[in-house]
Simulated assay, not measured.
Amino acid sequence: MKSSIKIKTLSRMACYLVVLFSFSAGVSAQMSTFNDGPVIKGFGKTAPVLTHTVAENDAFKIAFDVASAGNAGEINRKFDSLARFINMHVAAYVKKENIQLALVVHGKATFDLLNNVAYQNKYETTNANAPLLSALLQNNVRVILCGQSAAAHAINTSELVDGVEVQLSAMTAHALLQQNGYTVNPF
């Protein structure tokens, strides 16, 4: 009796493992269709969508709001979304000059804007976001830090990645961006 229970248990475990590995292989196969984009290499991987309806002359002015920090030493996936946006739209033949993005950062995400020296002092590892932020800035993305969050976390502007702007608050940044025609990305 005990051996038949063990066999049933082992059979179930084998089935679970088959399902788990099948799912994992399926996800890997799906993710293999995601590639570097034509603009920001190494970040913002996208997959082609052949049935899209984005036109070459479409124009975008979008603010991305990020308050959550990434894991220490890892890229903040919300920051990577801006690279994805640029890469996928240029790959879909939208003119790069028609894409204007702003990254408004506040809360705990403030620490992801630290330069490598300040980041290493805090987390004892390099800031994986620094190269991504540099690439975004080189592609005319505005990176705006909430001054209230900087003050709350005792962050000095000299501790930030070069090119990061500081605004009075994230609320102020969003209000000014909206007055200049930016929409807010809901993701």
Rank of each mutant, 00 (worst) to 15 (best):
A55W: 00
V18Y: 06
N87S: 10
V27K: 02
S68G: 09
C146F: 06
G26N: 08
A135S: 14
P131Q: 01
F187Y: 12
L113Q: 05
E159K: 10
Y119Q: 04
F60W: 05
D65H: 12
N127C: 06
S158R: 10
P186F: 03
N87A: 06
E124V: 01
G70A: 06
F34A: 13
K8H: 07
I5E: 01
V143P: 13
S11H: 00
F21P: 07
N121Y: 03
S81H: 03
A67F: 03
D36I: 07
L82A: 08
S32C: 09
G163A: 10
D80Q: 08
E74W: 01
T157P: 15
R12C: 15
G181I: 05
T110L: 11
S32H: 10
F187I: 12
M31G: 01
S32Y: 06
L160Q: 04
G42Y: 02
I5L: 06
I86R: 05
V66F: 05
V27M: 10
G107N: 05
K78C: 02
A91R: 06
V27R: 04
S81L: 15
S32E: 09
A47C: 08
L176G: 00
Y16H: 02
G26W: 06
G147V: 03
N71Q: 11
A150G: 09
S32W: 03
L17S: 10
V105W: 04
Q100L: 04
D65L: 11
A29V: 07
N140W: 06
L176S: 09
T53P: 05
A102Y: 00
G44F: 05
I155G: 03
H52R: 03
G147Y: 00
A72E: 13
L132C: 08
S28L: 13
T46H: 13
L176V: 11
D80R: 02
P186Q: 07
N139V: 01
C146R: 03
M13C: 12
T172E: 05
Q30R: 12
E74D: 15
A173Y: 00
L160C: 08
T110S: 15
S149W: 07
A150E: 01
F187C: 12
S11N: 12
V94D: 04
A55L: 15
P131L: 02
A59G: 11
V117D: 15
F34R: 09
E74L: 08
K45N: 11
H153M: 12
F64M: 07
S3W: 11
H153N: 13
A175P: 02
A130V: 14
S28H: 13
T9R: 14
T51E: 14
Q148Y: 03
F64R: 04
M1G: 15
D162T: 14
A67N: 15
D65R: 04
P38K: 10
T157A: 15
S149K: 12
M31N: 14
H52S: 14
I75E: 04
V105S: 01
V94T: 13
Q148C: 12
S28K: 14
H52Y: 02
